[in-house]
Simulated scan of single mutants.
Amino acid sequence: MVLRSASLDTRERLIQAAIRLFGEYGFEATTTRELAEAAEANIGSIAYHFGHKRGLYLAAARHIAEQLRTRLALDVPAPAGERDAALAALRAVTRRMVRTFTEDEECRRWLLLVMREQVHPGEAFEILQAEAFGLVQATLGGLIARLTDRAVDDRRVILETHTLIGQIVFFLIGREPLLRRLGIAAFDAATLADIEAVIEGHLARYAAPDDDPASPRTT
């Protein structure tokens, strides 16, 4: 049992080292020796756990995707039924997104690797898209479609979903410029409450009654 625990710990250390080094230097520029040293592991442990360096890179992407699904509760089925339930679910998901992208220090460590894959999509991006990003899009898109009486693959729904996600994710990507503009060193409770209020204001449009000309269901 002790050996198994030690093995799992080595695997986790390698993944964490991979996220940091691949994010900072890229796949090609990062050596297996550097990965092993950063993880305080034997260089042979990379082959043992992952087969090769690329296997470790893809495992790092799967780890990020799994953690995002957990933090955002993406594996929880969206509620069926009335608009009120859909709107409540949309608010809950966006609150979890705000908290994850502003407060979660581990999420900040994923950013460089994720951004590299966004700029030059590869096999790791396909993992992130299939196991995390696509689920975020599907979850929010399904709720927005229900609230706007449109099909989930409607062009407007897709664009509204992407815009909403982008607004929230930018609190992670654009964290430092925002903190400097606000004159604070980190997001405090009051600022987080204000951020949530801003996002809630954007979601309020989906609560518009059917006869409201400003409703997003009108074309």
Results as ranks from 00 to 15, higher is better:
128 L>T: 11
135 L>P: 01
109 R>K: 13
121 P>E: 13
128 L>Y: 12
121 P>Q: 11
119 V>G: 10
136 V>E: 06
139 T>L: 01
125 F>M: 09
119 V>P: 04
129 Q>E: 15
109 R>D: 05
119 V>T: 15
135 L>V: 12
112 L>C: 10
117 E>C: 11
138 A>Y: 03
130 A>P: 08
115 M>C: 03
129 Q>K: 12
111 L>Q: 10
135 L>E: 08
136 V>I: 15
133 F>Q: 07
122 G>W: 01
128 L>M: 15
124 A>T: 11
117 E>K: 08
137 Q>T: 13
114 V>N: 06
118 Q>I: 15
134 G>D: 03
115 M>F: 03
117 E>N: 15
118 Q>Y: 12
133 F>K: 02
134 G>M: 03
137 Q>G: 14
111 L>T: 13
127 I>M: 03
129 Q>S: 12
117 E>G: 12
119 V>R: 13
133 F>A: 13
116 R>F: 05
110 W>R: 00
109 R>Q: 07
125 F>R: 06
115 M>L: 09
123 E>R: 12
133 F>S: 04
131 E>F: 05
136 V>F: 02
138 A>C: 09
116 R>D: 12
134 G>C: 02
117 E>R: 13
137 Q>I: 09
120 H>Y: 08
135 L>I: 14
120 H>C: 06
128 L>R: 10
111 L>P: 01
130 A>K: 08
133 F>D: 11
132 A>W: 02
131 E>L: 10
116 R>M: 08
135 L>W: 03
123 E>I: 07
122 G>D: 09
131 E>D: 15
121 P>L: 08
121 P>H: 10
132 A>Q: 00
135 L>Y: 00
137 Q>D: 15
113 L>I: 09
120 H>S: 10
115 M>S: 06
128 L>V: 13
134 G>V: 04
121 P>T: 12
112 L>R: 10
135 L>R: 08
130 A>S: 12
121 P>I: 10
109 R>W: 01
135 L>M: 07
122 G>P: 07
134 G>T: 04
117 E>F: 04
130 A>T: 15
137 Q>C: 11
125 F>P: 01
129 Q>L: 13
118 Q>A: 14
136 V>N: 01
127 I>P: 00
117 E>V: 12
136 V>R: 02
119 V>I: 15
114 V>C: 13
122 G>F: 02
109 R>A: 09
135 L>G: 01
135 L>A: 05
114 V>G: 09
137 Q>V: 11
136 V>K: 00
